[in-house]
């Protein structure tokens, strides 16, 4: 079962929940955690395990072959991303702008733009106790997160078909990367804070999940600060509230040092147990 942990905005506790929940679930189930926040992957700072495998990941881009090229300029004309440009007597390709649509390559009359692979990032697979952890990291300067996210999910599909829980730490926001990360998940956990910012971000996240037709539930982080508006929203809108993680300076301190908190904070362990109970029931249903 694939479970994405998402939020409308960064900094709500997505990574804290992903890492702690994954480690906690390994006591009873097989678990893999994948960090799909490829622009700023942070889960690995909390889960340092033994490296088992790394793979470079690529996207396909055109490469100009001068010999047969007639400089007709069709490639530039068909590229909607300005990634192919004719400059006098040569054609220049800009890999970072290329979306790998193949139009220039396949429409070229003289076959002067064959597609080649170009590295965009790296997947690293770690093992920490019973937990498998897959980190996906976009190279600095590379602008498109989506192809790397989809390849990381493919890696998980290939290597973990028998694993009970596949937890995805999704990128923040409501735009393309989060859609890519969550679109084939079975269930989404939305993390938020009980503040006006948190409520606003939660509403956006709910809207995003609705557009994808996804089942989801809410976890409130830093419960105790702010007000009851998030709680009331969940009640009025009949959104399932899975757990409340209490606000605590101690959690913030442990987080700042890159430590997992559930084995040091009983309230955190309780919140994770509530989530586990629900997920076990859900996965029994999904599997049957």
């Amino acid at each position: 079962m694939k479970i994405s942990i998402a939020s409308g905005k960064g900094g709500t506790g997505k990574t804290t929940l992903s890492t702690n929940l994954s480690a906690y679930l390994t006591e009873k189930s097989t678990v893999v955690l994948a960090d799909l926040d490829v622009e700023e992957p942070n889960s690995g700072l909390f889960i340092q395990g033994k490296l088992v495998n790394t793979e470079d990941k690529y996207k396909m881009i055109p490469e100009w072959k001068e010999e047969a090229c007639t400089l007709c300029g069709l490639c530039q004309e068909v590229c909607n991303f300005n990634a192919v440009i004719r400059l006098g007597t040569q054609i220049m390709v800009f890999p970072q702008l290329c979306h790998s649509c193949y139009a220039c390559s396949e429409l070229c009359q003289s076959s002067s733009l064959p597609m080649i692979s170009q590295k965009i990032g790296q997947i690293s697979h770690y093992k920490r106790g019973k937990l498998d952890f897959v980190e996906s990291r976009l190279d600095v300067g590379e602008e498109q997160a989506v192809p790397l996210i989809s390849q990381t999910i493919k890696y998980i599909d290939q290597h973990f078909s028998q694993t009970r829980f596949k937890i995805f730490d999704a990128p923040p926001g409501t735009s393309c990367p989060v859609i890519e990360a969550t679109k084939d998940s079975d269930f989404i956990i939305l993390v938020t804070e009980p503040t006006p910012f948190g409520l606003h971000d939660l509403k956006l996240a709910v809207e995003t999940m609705r557009s994808l037709n996804k089942a989801f539930a809410v976890v409130i982080n830093r419960y105790g600060i702010g007000n009851d508006e998030v709680l009331e929203y969940c009640q009025n809108e009949k959104k399932r509230l899975l757990a409340k993680i209490p606000n605590s300076r101690r959690i913030a301190e442990l987080y700042s040092r890159g430590e997992l908190v559930f084995n040091q904070i009983p309230e955190m362990a309780q919140a994770l147990k509530d989530i586990e109970d629900y997920l076990l029931k859900l996965s029994a249903k999904v599997l049957s």
């Binding site: 991303f81 300005n82 990634a83 440009i85 400059l87 006098g88 702008l97």
Partner: peptide
């Protein structure tokens, strides 16, 4: 107004 790649097209124009 280009969504993507304003830089390279502008450089092409300078050329």
């Amino acid at each position: 107004g280009a969504a993507h790649g304003a830089g390279p097209v502008a450089a092409q124009k300078l050329f």
